[in-house]
Simulated scan of single mutants.
Amino acid sequence: MNDATTVCAKVQMYLLAGINECTPVTTTLWYDSTDPFAVRLLIEIEDSTYADWVFARDLLERGMHGSAGHGDVRVWPAPRDRSETRISLAGVGLESNYVQAIFTARSADLHDFLACTYDLVAAGAEEINFERELTHLLADG
């Protein structure tokens, strides 16, 4: 779903569980121009149960070209196949034995998603509505 303020894309990713083992995972990337610096990654764990991650849009962009991120979210091109991008999430919540989960996705899918977000809000044109943010924070109490 895309409208005047949001971009939403289903992206097939794979959870890397071992050297030659990967599991397909249903994910959705979401961008809302009212929060122009962030993207959301929703990972379907079970039917109607999702892990929801929010991280910087430019982290995803930078990670497609070289290693980016320090901490809970890291992104980098796959070492042998630059047509794939890896995303590492710490404490992803998929299962209790996952301290860190590494996903791989087609770089072209991520590029297409990012291109749509930049059509809404160009890089460098991001602005924060401080009044709206303050009202939102105060309402959450």
Rank of each mutant, 00 (worst) to 15 (best):
G124V: 04
L114F: 05
L94M: 15
S96Y: 13
T27C: 12
F103R: 01
D109Q: 08
A90W: 02
E84Q: 07
F130C: 03
A68T: 09
E95H: 12
E84S: 02
D140W: 15
A4D: 13
I128F: 13
F130T: 04
F55S: 01
E131D: 14
R40C: 08
W53T: 02
A68S: 14
Y31A: 03
D47M: 10
I128V: 15
R132G: 10
Y50R: 01
S83I: 10
A108S: 08
N97V: 15
H111N: 00
G93I: 03
G18V: 04
Y14L: 06
H136D: 06
S33V: 08
W30F: 15
A122D: 10
Q100D: 06
D35A: 12
R57Q: 06
D32G: 08
V7C: 11
S96T: 11
G18H: 04
W53D: 02
E21N: 04
S88Y: 03
L137E: 00
C22W: 01
V75Q: 01
L29G: 07
V92N: 00
S48E: 03
V11S: 00
F113A: 05
R40K: 06
T5G: 08
A17W: 11
R57D: 05
D58G: 11
H70N: 03
E84W: 09
T49V: 15
L16K: 00
T135D: 10
W53G: 02
D81P: 01
T104N: 02
N20W: 08
N129G: 07
D35N: 07
E133W: 13
E44P: 05
L110T: 08
A101S: 14
N97P: 09
N2R: 08
Y14N: 05
Y118F: 13
Y14F: 11
L120S: 00
K10P: 14
A56H: 11
E84T: 04
A68C: 11
E95N: 11
A123L: 13
I45F: 00
T34C: 07
R82P: 12
A90T: 04
T6V: 14
R80A: 05
A115V: 06
A122I: 05
Y31L: 03
M13I: 04
T104R: 05
L29V: 13
N129W: 12
D140N: 08
C116M: 07
L59S: 08
G71P: 01
A51V: 01
T85W: 12
H70A: 04
R132A: 15
M64V: 09
L15T: 10
A115M: 07
L16G: 00
G66K: 06
R106T: 07
R62H: 12
T34S: 09
V92G: 01
R80T: 07
L42H: 01
V54W: 04
F37L: 11
E61W: 13
Y50H: 08
L41H: 02
R132I: 11
T117L: 09
Q100C: 10
N20G: 10
C8A: 05
G124S: 03
D119I: 04
L29D: 05
G93D: 02
A68R: 06
Y31P: 02
N97I: 15
G63T: 10
W76Y: 14
L16Q: 01
A38F: 15
P36Y: 09
G71V: 11
E21S: 07
V25H: 00
L94P: 09
T27R: 02
L59C: 11
I102W: 09
R86K: 03
E61D: 10
Y118N: 00
T117M: 09
